[in-house]
Design a protein around this nucleic acid. Structure first.
Lengths: 359, 359
DNA sequence: ATGAAAGCGCTAACAC
DNA sequence: GTGTTAGCGCTTTCAT
């Protein structure tokens, strides 16, 4: 039962040998309905009579039709993309964020568009431009400190902007995260409370365009808490180029031991470094925590297995990702674009065995 | 100097208050050129007179115009997307693949569309459908064993298909990887050559839809090499659900020690497990390699820092990613769709200190 | 419940 | 070197 329709891929012309990918027109023809009906079967099947629906679904299956979302987006102005800019994918915690986000967005049929900058500020703007060209419906970026050009670009895009993994003084729009500065202060306070006074830290130094702002914030918080307590921050060492790694911790610890052999407790800017610190001490026969105490940040999986198990500061990055996904869904559904949301997911010390008590 | 043009966003109508995102028409009007000229300035500036080009670029900057790639793709039939399906992003080696791929593709202005399945076969097909709807120009997936429906979908897409991280017996199209089976055999041979006969292994068991095929291949290769050498494979343990983790190694090692207290050398299906094995031994006062030797797979960064440093089997996943990117670029440029490429990136043993010699 | 017309924002192809 | 026309594959909107 063919009705007069607006199908474009008419039966006579266009029947070229090279296998063309089937379009909605091909499906509509085969099913003997209009393209609109096919469209409805795909996006809102309830609207179509069961009998028609079945015919269309059969045609879809027979042809192996897969809708073209780019074409759909152009028309509907909804791309189903959410952009995510991360410093790196090689960090378990950032991967956990991506993971948590995906988990939530997947259900609502959104797809994450991931870009990463390798902590390079210049790259961040390039990536953002590329991303924006894909018309994401919201954008998530790792918070605190962006280039001015970046903010302009972002605001012009006129989509929800969510900064994560830090709590900027003045967020561009929304923010979900924790204070890296507070992480540093918390670590220092913890060591001070345990009675230590000869307290050190190891982190990376930030030179050039490659900058780990969040790590630096933790270092700064740590220093300031020491100073507030009237304790010397001379044993706080920035060594090697950020971002840090396992081997960074080992090398930095060697250096710290050289500069301040009397150090009794060490904060590592990341568990990655902390593991290196522990391993280096192990090699040197320095006992942890009897001789030196170590506290890290990030609660990486390895910390639990370490001997001694690593005391660290935990942030639930996976939950942070999920929370971000929920906020996006809210924002995109209810569309209240006036209120700014700021969520502090908090942090907590995970006391394990690598920090002792001064005696 | 306005010329007659086909601009759609005419000066009078369409001037609504709600800030619309500027389109190519807005730019063309402001610059006093046709939309085509703007398009050329963006995609092939050489074709445009410098003076015109500058005018257009100024208009672009003034308006904050960002091209809509979805619209461009629809017309040009080139989306600039490459699809990548991974089991997980939470594994440093898979992250390295994504990383290497991005590195190469970025230069050619391709963007990676990443999906991950959490080792879930059912999820793999769902993800593939979503990805295909975005019309990627090539698709990369982790090789070996796919559902039949998947292969059909893939072939119908009529784009280059590259399977990575394993070398399937019969690849769908192209493949870049290494033989996980050979990894297992190599590990076994290495331990055999060192004189060990009471040889064990720890890996995950694969039940339900969540399956680590590649890990299982390594276990199988290991077992077969033992059997070929006439050595018992009774100490090969599949424990807990794959994929494995640090804590998996610790638990599996406890179990192995219970089942086969006489074990002298252990292959861990992944360095993740291997680290857990080492830590568990450390806790029990079992010396490595004096009492038990350990060899892993994957050459994760932590292995270098461990005490003793972990002997492992190395595959250059980052290079694998880059190599894949290059192949895609080749395929997309030269378009020779007839020849199948199969690249073995090989593997090598990294001898460190966790494997001794039987005496 | 289904269809027709129009158009999303861009670029291929050809004209000048 | 630049412009015009047509159309990519969908969905919106309105009609029936």
């Amino acid at each position: 039962m063919m009705t007069k329709s607006d199908n474009k891929a008419g039966g006579t012309s266009r029947r070229n040998s090279a296998a063309r990918r089937p379009t909605i027109s091909d499906v509509s023809q085969l099913a003997g309905v209009s393209r609109m009906t096919v469209s409805r079967v795909i996006s809102d099947p309830e609207l179509v009579l069961p009998a028609t629906r079945e015919r269309v679904n059969k045609a879809i299956a027979d042809l192996g039709y897969v809708p073209d979302r780019a074409a759909g987006s152009l028309s509907s102005r909804r791309t189903g993309f959410i952009a995510l800019i991360l410093p790196t994918l090689t960090n378990a915690n950032f991967a956990a964020v991506a993971h948590g986000l995906t988990e939530v967005l997947r259900e609502a049929d959104y797809h994450l568009l991931i870009a990463y900058t390798e902590y390079d500020m210049a790259e961040e703007e390039r990536q953002l431009r590329n991303l924006l060209a894909r018309r994401p419906e919201a954008i998530v970026l790792t918070g605190a400190v962006h280039q001015r050009a970046l903010s302009r670009l972002l605001i012009a895009a006129d989509i929800p902007i969510i900064e994560i993994a830090d709590l900027p003084q003045r967020p561009i729009e929304h923010a979900i995260g924790f204070s890296n500065y507070q992480v540093g202060r918390t670590a220092a306070r913890f060591l001070l409370n345990r009675g230590f006074r000869k307290i050190g830290a190891v982190g990376g130094s930030n030179v050039g365009e490659v900058i780990d702002h969040r790590g630096e914030e933790r270092m700064r918080g740590f220093e300031e808490e020491l100073e507030l307590a009237g304790v010397s921050a001379d044993r706080v060492l920035r060594h090697g180029q950020a971002p840090v790694s396992y081997s960074h911790g080992a090398m930095a610890m060697s250096e710290l031991l050289r500069l301040a052999p009397d150090v009794e407790a060490v904060f590592a800017v990341s568990d990655l470094s902390a593991v290196g610190v522990v391993m280096e001490c192990q090699r040197r026969g320095i006992r942890i925590p009897e001789d030196i105490s170590v506290i890290g940040f990030g609660d990486f999986e390895i910390g639990k297995e370490l001997n001694p198990a690593l005391t660290t500061i935990h942030v639930d990055f996976s939950a942070l990702g999920r929370r971000t996904g929920q906020m996006i869904l809210d924002l995109l559904t209810n569309g209240e674009r006036d209120t700014t949301h700021i969520v502090d997911v908090g942090l907590r010390i995970v006391e394990r065995d690598s920090v002792g008590r001064w005696s």
